[in-house]
């Protein structure tokens, strides 16, 4: 017998997250949901008397396979949410009807099946599995070894990009930069002021003028820079009680004047 509580927990833990496959937008969310499903299945294996498989399920699926999915998502872009609008006419209906029909069909067949369970209740144990695996199925094991090696090599071959030009050393890169007319010395560091980590504030030259190139180009493109004049004005304005009230450690005016990234909620 199987614990009823276990079954329902497993059912809830598998069916609900797996629905994310159909309705969630971000692949990362889906992947994490599937991790949950895998854990639930591992629990089911343990409950069904297959602790070895339960462990393997955790290790292989949640630990390896799903993590690999996540890595691939990072490679191809984590945050591109999928547009859920269907592009193929009727595909949604066909998909739901076919899958639903398949489910109903399977359930009806299972309901018809009359299997007399043998209640020997032998609990699968790693030793028992190992005994069978390395006696009866040893050849299959060997073949699976070949398969895994082949798969690994295949993945390498598929993802390998041959280098078309010789690798350039650092010395060559430096020489090329100098030849292209780059400044041989370091750019000045950004300005540092007492109340701000100030990577986005340009340094001041001896005449008190801001040096534009002291700020990272990335911040410039993101339009997250400020000029020194404005910041000085803010500094002189510290006794304004409005600013003190803000929970942020950063100067209050700072957040207001900063242009946030497109599409993000201003903090």
């Amino acid at each position: 017998m199987v614990s009823e509580v276990l079954f329902w927990i497993v059912a809830a833990l598998t069916v609900i997250p797996s629905l994310a496959l159909l309705f969630a937008k971000r692949p990362v969310h889906i992947a994490m949901s599937i991790v949950l499903v895998m854990v639930g299945l591992a629990a089911a294996y343990v409950g069904l008397g297959a602790p070895f498989l339960g462990v393997v399920q955790i290790v292989v699926y949640t630990g390896a396979v799903m993590m690999m999915f996540l890595f691939v998502m990072m490679l191809v872009g984590v945050d591109n949410a999928e547009d859920m609008r269907e592009t193929i006419k009727g595909q949604k209906w066909i998909g739901f009807l076919a899958a639903g029909g398949l489910g109903i069909l399977l359930i009806s067949v299972i309901g018809d099946a009359s299997i007399e369970p043998r209640l020997t209740d032998t609990v699968g144990n790693p030793e028992g599995v190992a005994m069978i695996l390395f006696s009866e199925y040893v050849l299959v094991m060997e073949v699976l070894g070949f398969l895994l090696i082949t798969a690994a090599v295949g993945a390498l071959v598929l993802t390998h990009v041959p280098r078309l030009t010789p690798r350039r050393t650092q010395v060559e890169l430096q020489a090329a930069r100098v030849l292209a007319g780059a400044n041989p010395v370091n750019k000045p560091m950004p300005g540092v002021y007492a109340r701000h980590n100030a990577l986005d504030v340009p340094a001041l030259d001896p005449q008190g003028q801001p040096i534009e190139e002291s700020v990272s180009r990335v911040l410039e493109i993101r339009r997250q820079t400020q000029d020194g004049q404005e910041f000085r004005a803010q500094l002189e304005d510290t006794d304004n009680p409005d600013h003190e009230a803000r929970p942020h450690g950063a100067p209050s005016r700072d957040a207001d004047t900063r242009n946030t990234r497109d599409g993000e909620e201003p903090k």
Partner: peptide, 24 residues
């Protein structure tokens, strides 16, 4: 032959369901 992988997959699944239905 739309070239859409998902249409092909749908065809396969519908076929499987139909065959299973006939058998059942």
């Amino acid at each position: 032959q739309t070239g859409q992988v998902r249409s092909y997959a749908a065809t396969m699944l519908v076929g499987v369901v139909l065959i299973a239905l006939i058998i059942v």
